[in-house]
């Protein structure tokens, strides 16, 4: 597939925010719509990488506040939890 425009990339991520758990649907979609555009490139990359993770892991990190072993994801997780 050819390179996506920024608007198309955001639309792609919008679909990646559709998850198996309702809780994650809310958290991820809200973060994408309200904060993603204002993030630095590095944090945007972290968010993209976060969406690749499994639902139970996202639940542990984003809802149960367990610390992730993925050092490179800690910043974006912390940000989502604060906002």
């Amino acid at each position: 597939m050819s390179r996506l425009t920024p608007a198309e990339e955001k639309a792609r991520l919008r679909w990646q925010c559709r998850r198996g758990l309702l809780e994650l649907d809310f958290i991820l979609a809200e973060f994408l719509e309200q904060h993603y555009d204002d993030l630095s490139d590095a944090l945007q990359q972290q968010f993209v990488c976060l969406l690749e993770q499994s639902d139970p892991d996202l639940q542990r990190w984003l809802i149960s506040a367990e610390l992730t072993d993925f050092l490179e994801l800690r910043e974006v997780i912390g940000l989502i939890r604060r906002l």
């Binding site: 559709r18 198996g20 758990l21 639902d55 139970p56």
Partner: peptide, 10 residues
Amino acid sequence: VFPTRSHTVA
């Protein structure tokens, strides 16, 4: 959606 994101996960 990607298969392991199906609602069975809930």
